[in-house]
């Protein structure tokens, strides 16, 4: 009997704020890009390609296994360290977890045009849902700078 009752929902960017709220030390950095969702998300969802260009710690990533939305990947950082990630990848949403790192990315089409992108993550307190809060905002800003540079160049990128 609830078919006609109003319901509410979360887009993926709001969703990232919720998940980050449950992770002490996590900070969500957002930016509005003047590009369509499909274009922006194609860059973030290319785990073995452009994703490694956007996330500064991930020099090379290889997807080992996929099962629906779930994936397992192996990554090598710029410092040569290797990590095994388990994660979820679906349109507008990417969440990757290793013992020492958490990476979250979300994107949603903005009603007025463009795409809102949000990033979170950083060095994980090993095995815990917590992030060492050092440099996380700066790294996220840099990652968004890289993403913005990969998106077809436009003049009017706006920051929130």
């Amino acid at each position: 009997m609830t078919a006609h009752w109003p319901t509410a929902d979360l887009d993926e960017v709001r969703r990232l704020h919720v998940l980050a709220a449950g992770i002490p030390g996590a900070h969500v950095t957002e930016r509005l890009l003047d590009a369509p969702f499909t274009e922006v998300w194609a860059l973030l969802a290319d785990i073995e390609g452009s994703f490694g260009l956007i996330e500064p710690d991930m020099r090379h990533i290889r997807v080992i296994r996929t099962d629906g939305e779930r994936l397992e990947a192996r990554a090598w950082s710029r410092f040569g360290m290797r990590a095994r990630f388990d994660g979820v990848l679906r349109p507008g949403w990417c969440w990757l977890q290793s013992r020492f790192l958490l990476i979250g990315a979300a994107a949603a089409a903005e009603p007025g045009g463009g795409t809102r992108v949000a990033l979170t993550g950083g060095v994980r307190v090993p095995g815990r849902a917590a992030i060492v809060p050092l440099g996380v905002r700066r790294e996220a800003e840099r990652a968004l700078d890289r993403l913005a540079a990969l998106v077809a160049p436009r003049e009017d990128q706006r920051e929130r």
Partner: peptide
């Protein structure tokens, strides 16, 4: 955090209702 992610998937429609 992957369990948190899955829990969020399950709770969102319930909270939205």
């Amino acid at each position: 955090t992957l369990a948190m992610n899955e829990l969020l998937d399950r709770l969102t429609p319930y909270v939205g209702r």
